[in-house]
């Protein structure tokens, strides 16, 4: 592939704080990635459709309230739509106990407040490459 990853940054649920997701969008762009940015309050079926049409590698969910509780539902919906290769990451405020639950539900990585720019960029890029490899293997299968 000759791009460094395509990422959908979005918010589901009720919260609207977007300072973090806007900054992360800039980080990923500056690292050469293509970022689809949406506002808050997206519905899960719309996120799935959007991810499908845009053929993204990674979905980043920003959550500063309790919206991360909806992420397992999103992962389920992606799998049902045959988009299980898309890696899902969560950024924002997630209490430790609930972080474990998210990882078990299939979240690839959680970025807590204070996560460094380097770690965000490197890990998202690596996850995008993983997703892309899965797709290419599918082509060959």
């Amino acid at each position: 592939m000759n791009h460094r990853g395509k990422v959908l940054l979005t918010k589901i649920g009720l919260d609207a704080h977007d300072r973090g997701s806007r900054i992360v969008a800039t980080y990923l762009r500056d690292a050469g990635m293509e970022v689809i940015y949406t506002g808050p309050w997206q519905q899960i079926p719309d996120v799935v459709n959007l991810a499908d049409q845009e053929d993204v590698d990674v979905i980043g969910i920003s959550s500063l309230a309790t919206d991360h509780a909806l992420v397992p539902g999103l992962i389920q919906a992606l799998r049902e739509a045959g988009l299980g290769h898309i890696r899902v990451v969560v950024g924002g405020i997630v209490p430790n106990a609930e972080a474990d639950e998210l990882i078990q539900a299939g979240v690839a990585r959680i970025f807590h407040p204070g996560a460094s720019r380097e770690s965000i960029v490197q890990e998202v890029e690596a996850l995008a490459a993983e997703a892309r490899t899965t797709i290419e293997q599918d082509h060959q299968a």
């Binding site: 649920g13 009720l14 919260d15 309230a65 309790t66 909806l70």
Partner: peptide, 21 residues
């Protein structure tokens, strides 16, 4: 609650989002 902020009654949103904020 965030449900109220968005203009909904509590029975119009996912229960897991209720009452924390």
């Amino acid at each position: 609650c965030n449900s109220h902020m968005r203009g909904y009654d509590p029975d119009q949103v996912e229960p897991v989002l209720l009452g924390t904020c």
